[in-house]
Amino acid sequence: MLIMLIIFAAIGFVVQYILGLLQIKNFTKNYTQLREKGRVAIGRRPAIVKSGTLVLLQLNNKNEIEDARYMQGVTVFSKFKPLKGLEGKKLQKVNASDLEDYNKLLGKAILDAQNTFHVIENGGEIAQIPSPMMKAVRKVNGMFKKERGLKHGLHR
């Protein structure tokens, strides 16, 4: 019984790995297509329970959005789709009213692309967004540190 469970877990891991590779291939294909036409701003909203969202915004030399695509979903079966409604807008001038027609996570990913573009344009580096799993690990570690500090009479 235990061996069967291990075999099923291993098969599940391999299938997930292969599907993940296909998703990366889909990202690479879409990014390359957009990059051939100009610069690309990337926005992301990682999530575990909610839909993870990734946005690719292709910009012309005036920083106007010419083409936009997004991938949103909770599974590795998610693929990029066209994102309509932003064409011709300057990335720096996209605001909340421009995002009203999109769901909340997609809007946040578009704003992340805007922020990422701004940071890179000004010579900065993008801070890595911690994965949802990493956020959970940090939260649990923080709880243990706080508890340990209280046990030993340490205060912050």
Rank of each mutant, 00 (worst) to 15 (best):
F77T: 11
D98P: 06
Q128W: 04
R35T: 12
F27E: 01
N30A: 15
N60M: 08
Y70A: 08
K79Y: 02
F77Y: 05
S131D: 11
E147P: 01
A41G: 07
I18M: 04
A109W: 04
L19P: 00
A68G: 04
S97M: 06
A41S: 15
M1F: 09
I24R: 11
K89D: 01
S51T: 05
L57V: 05
Q33Y: 09
F117A: 05
A113W: 00
K25Y: 13
M143P: 01
R35A: 11
R35I: 01
K93D: 15
S51Q: 15
P130F: 10
E64L: 08
R39A: 13
I6L: 14
N95C: 06
K29W: 08
F80Y: 14
V94N: 02
N115I: 03
P82A: 11
K62R: 11
N103S: 12
G38H: 02
G88Q: 02
A41I: 09
F144P: 00
G52Y: 04
I110F: 00
E125Y: 04
V94Y: 00
A109N: 14
V74A: 10
F144N: 15
P132I: 07
G142Q: 11
N103P: 14
V55R: 01
K50Y: 14
P82N: 08
R45V: 13
K81R: 12
G107Y: 03
D112K: 02
G52C: 05
L2R: 10
I126E: 00
Q23H: 03
Y17D: 03
L99S: 06
G149N: 14
K81G: 03
Q16T: 09
L91A: 02
R69N: 06
V40A: 01
K108Y: 06
M1L: 09
R45T: 10
N141V: 14
Q23G: 09
G43H: 01
M1W: 08
S131G: 07
L19V: 08
L21A: 15
L154P: 05
M133N: 09
E147W: 08
I129Q: 07
S51A: 11
E125I: 04
A136S: 11
L59S: 02
E66P: 01
G38Q: 10
R35E: 14
M143H: 15
V14R: 02
H118Q: 13
A9G: 07
I11C: 08
V14S: 04
H155M: 06
G12V: 00
L86A: 01
G153L: 10
L19T: 06
L105F: 10
T32Q: 13
L83Y: 05
P132S: 11
E87T: 04
L105D: 13
L154W: 12
D112G: 02
I120D: 01
Q33T: 12
Q16L: 09
L34V: 03
R69E: 12
Q114H: 05
S51E: 11
E66G: 15
K37R: 09
